[in-house]
Design a binder for these strands. Structure first.
Lengths: 247, 247
DNA sequence: TCCGGTCTAGTGGTCTTACCACTTGACCTC
DNA sequence: GAGGTCAAGTGGTAAGACCACTAGACCGGA
């Protein structure tokens, strides 16, 4: 009973939002083109105009469309204007499979940010964060189950982000975390090498406690490289398989 | 007539959204507390319930509030759940001055991502990007005006991001760019050392053209460090002044 | 031919009113 | 005390009307 999840009830506006967002990010609605008029759209969708407008406002907030009073609603080029939160919508491609291009991008960003987050944590972490960091690595030492290690790894990085005292990293982490959550189930095995590298987790935690920025950064980079290489190899494999299918 | 800007007309929903968002990010509405009921809120604000709901949907999209059917609307802790796009709202603190903590965070993130963006561009940039990159550095060479250099610098980095072929970096860049735009006017002088480092711009562009990843990354890091040190010194100065004022 | 104004159809913006669906907590019953 | 019942309050949906703005067609004078 541990994995029960609350069922998510979606309002009409949410459904409309998701439907339009999906069509836009998949390119089914051409960027630069105009959406049908609101009255026409809500007739097509069979919903109230208010519900539709709430959805459109969300799309505008996500910079997927731009609304002009009296001048219609145009679809923006999300690659040009989108924000980081689109990643969690893009990571799952059509058909439910992981989009390898997006996954590779996320892995690269993780590799670039992680070591600096660790470095700053070593520079600025409070005693409270340091303490909790050691507690987490203790639990990591005692844990064998990969799913549990995934969870602990996230707690570990969450603490490092908190220790870094950097709001930009916090927000980026929040978004990347949400993206990761979309695919965490299928990543468990690929990340095994990283998740079981208990020595590196501990080295980072102790580096932070010792305020050793250089060492902490290096060990964090090593830790992340294990998972990165696993994922990148898998991506390469998937891409070559897809290529083989096409030819 | 070059600096004329189109006046931005704001709908009621936009006004309501901004007002509530400001109150939330400034902590004037406590995280975890409940907002008044919709009917009460729109009476206070003097607007239609539909307009209010459009604003609330945007706040929910930005993860600033969570709405529960029948159970009220609660204010979330944006530090815990917010996305990167909040940076552009946080960078200007109350009173209109730049928030030094946020600014420092952005500078650090820029320093971490920039070199890797350049490295990946050297690895993957298309011929089109390479060519345009050289054109931009040519224009940088011919330009003296700092404001114009700011603009060119952004085009330069925009091309590197395009060349990196990394959607995560693209989205992060979009957001950071929007944040930077909020404060670019006051940053011109501080960034002078970076903006006039024409040799580094060219070295990066030529490194990309030569597919020399290591060299490109190094030169990009050098370039960014010039601006970073300028900003960080200014931040230190501002913080010490503020401290002096308080004591 | 061109420029500028005018008009109009169509679009998004706002408002009103009503009712439905869900959550919460008080209350009751056993 | 545990569990069920119910009502008040909250957000969700709906239909219809009218206002504000834009874009394009149209017209008239230079």
């Amino acid at each position: 009973m541990a994995t029960l999840e609350p069922i998510r009830r979606r309002s009409l506006a949410d459904e409309v939002y998701e439907q339009l967002r999906t069509k836009i990010v998949r390119g089914e609605i051409e960027a630069g083109s105009s959406l049908p008029a609101e009255r026409a759209l809500c007739a097509m969708l069979g919903v109230n105009r208010g519900a539709l407008r709430e959805a459109l406002k969300r799309l505008e907030q996500a910079r997927l469309v731009s609304i002009h009073h009296g001048g219609g609603t145009r679809v923006e080029d999300f690659r040009q204007s989108g924000g980081l939160d689109l990643l969690s919508k893009l990571i799952i491609g059509p058909g439910g499979s992981v989009d390898t291009h997006v996954a590779r991008s996320v892995v690269e960003m993780r590799s670039a940010l992680g070591p600096d987050i660790a470095r700053l944590a070593a520079l600025r972490a409070t005693d409270s964060v340091k303490e909790r960091l050691l507690e987490v690595v203790d639990r990591i030492d005692e844990t064998e189950d990969l799913r549990a290690l995934q969870q602990l790894s996230m707690e570990f990085w969450d603490l490092l982000v908190e220790g870094s005292n950097n709001v930009a990293y916090r927000f980026a982490f929040n978004t990347l975390h949400a993206t990761y959550r979309e695919i965490s189930q299928v990543m468990t095995q690929v990340l095994a090498a990283e998740l079981t590298d208990r020595a590196s987790f501990r080295a980072v935690a102790e580096g932070v406690n010792a305020r050793d920025t250089a060492e902490t950064e290096t060990r964090a980079r090593e830790l992340l490289r294990k998972g990165a290489s696993g994922i990148l190899e898998l991506i390469q494999l998937m891409d070559s398989m897809k290529e083989g299918k096409q030819t």
